[in-house]
Design a protein around this nucleic acid. Structure first.
Length: 293
DNA sequence: CCGCGGGCCTGAGAGC
DNA sequence: TGCTCTCAGGCCCGCG
């Protein structure tokens, strides 16, 4: 669920509430997620001050004052909300009974200013883990992560380098976190539509014999960056579970061109096509067969 | 090494 | 109203 733009939206919401603040109390209400929380998580967080919040791929990273880093992943259905007494009804959001944990509130942190940070994950596909910051790059979850698509290093040339000789479809390649980190099902579909590239094309076919990007790869790199940036600016996409930290939904779902729009007309000006849904690698792909080639 | 399918969970929505 | 079925934004594992 949360892809790069949703995680980035959460990160930006957490910064003002969390950075420079001490965790006065931590409660682990349920730890049996798909990848269980460390049993001592609450004890290790208590008393720590958060010095910064980073994002890598779809992971949130909270740096602590003792050199440790808290890794947080939101899985398919996770969210983090900030509660301050009296302000827990967000514009367009939902109501949380003040101070009373809801279903699937697995971790609650109380900060030195009385703010509560609540980690909620109905499907329990998320994770939290604590480790020395210096070991992050070598951690199994991080060791094989590919390029950040919003970094300055990312572009047509970098994209071509990771697609070269790949036999898999370009859609599956975009979802492969070892190649590009942070793209999920929604933004893979949207970027391919914006670039006019069929999701069924072989990834390696976007690279020329000499290893340079074909025109399509250059277009795809630019489209991916543009769609991710627009989604971040819109606060991400809320199909169901994604919320900003104030409880309000993102707005990018109103701007989907193909995702979840099977049977609807292709929005590309001049295109008479109809959005189709196919299954690739067990996941839905939405695209326009007329203008995506 | 690569690519694919299954499994992990809960909840919403469709169809009967 | 209620049951059953399908599907969902992610990722790990094991198989060929």
């Amino acid at each position: 669920m949360p892809e790069l733009p949703e995680v980035e939206t959460v990160r930006q919401g957490l910064i003002p509430a969390l950075v420079g603040h001490r965790i006065d109390a931590a409660e682990l209400r349920r730890g049996d997620l798909r990848r269980p929380f460390p049993p001592a998580l609450a004890a290790h967080l208590t008393g720590r001050t958060v010095t910064g919040i980073r994002r890598r791929a779809k992971y949130l990273l909270a740096d602590l004052d003792n050199g440790q880093v808290l890794i947080v992943h939101l899985g398919m259905s996770g969210s983090i909300r900030i509660e301050r007494d009296g302000t827990d009804i967000a514009p367009g959001g939902f109501h949380h009974p003040r101070g009373r944990p809801g279903a699937h509130d697995h971790v609650i942190l109380r900060l030195d200013d009385g703010t509560r940070l609540v980690y909620n994950d109905p499907r329990r596909f998320g994770l939290m883990e604590l480790l020395p910051a210096a070991e992050l790059e070598q951690h199994p979850l991080f060791r094989h992560l590919g390029l950040e698509p919003l970094s300055s290093a990312f572009g047509g040339v970098a994209l071509a380098r990771c697609l070269a000789r790949r036999k898999t479809s370009i859609k599956a390649a975009l979802l492969d976190q070892r190649l590009i980190a942070g793209v999920g099902n929604i933004y893979a579909c949207e970027a391919l539509w914006a670039a006019g590239i069929s999701p069924r094309r072989q990834a390696g076919a976007l690279v020329r014999q000499d290893g340079k990007p074909a025109v399509a790869a250059t277009r795809l790199a630019a489209a991916l960056r543009a769609v991710l940036e627009a989604a971040v600016a819109a606060g991400g996409s809320s199909l169901r579970d994604h919320r900003r930290t104030d409880g309000s939904p993102g707005a990018f779902q109103h701007r989907f061109s193909v995702y979840d729009r099977e049977g609807q007309p292709c929005p590309k000006p001049g295109c008479r096509g109809t959005v189709r849904r196919i299954v690739q690698g067990g996941r839905s792909t939405f695209y326009c067969p007329d203008c995506q080639r």
